[in-house]
């Protein structure tokens, strides 16, 4: 019976590594394909409309958000990486995926805008580890901006 916990731990570790890595790669492929498709829409963080104020047909607030969780293997890996210090690569991909996905969803929610202005991206830790900064289990990324359609 003493070994049951250890076996379970390694089973979760293997499951997290195998399925987690596969899902992450698939998600990255999806993100890259969609980013390529939306390359023609300028996403800017500036507030001013320069040179086309007279041509604006509509301006609306749009947002996109996503909650992404880390897998079991990376949770253990991040623990080790934090112990050693330096780069915590386990979390880098987590927040990167969340932000890029949120920005893509914002573009998709804008339904054919010509430009998205004053884009803001914010991230917050949610879920079981909401108030424990040392154990970020899942992050929410929110991207919002003003979608401008030109005449």
């Amino acid at each position: 019976m003493e070994y049951a916990n250890i076996i379970l731990f390694f089973a979760f570790l293997a499951l997290g590594y195998g399925v987690g890595t596969y899902l992450e790669k698939r998600h990255y492929r999806d993100i890259e394909a969609r980013e390529k498709a939306y390359l023609n829409i300028p996403i800017v963080t500036m507030e001013e409309t320069v040179g086309y104020e007279q041509e604006v047909a509509s301006a609306n607030l749009v947002s996109g958000s996503v909650v992404i969780s880390i897998d079991y293997f990376k949770r253990i890996l991040s623990g080790l990486q934090m112990f050693v210090g330096g780069r915590v690569t386990a979390y880098e991909t987590l927040v990167d995926r969340a932000r890029r996905e949120a920005i893509l969803r914002m573009i998709e929610n804008s339904h054919g805008a010509d430009i998205i202005e004053n884009v803001r991206v914010e991230t917050s830790a949610i879920g079981q580890s909401a108030n424990r900064k040392q154990a970020v289990g899942s992050v929410e990324a929110l991207a919002y901006g003003t979608a401008i359609k030109l005449r």
């Binding site: 499951l15 899902l23 992450e24 998600h27 897998d71 929410e140």
Partner: peptide
Amino acid sequence: FKNMVGGELKGYTELLN
């Protein structure tokens, strides 16, 4: 369950939306 393998937590995304 999703915490094991990682990825999007659709329930939470909807909740926050």
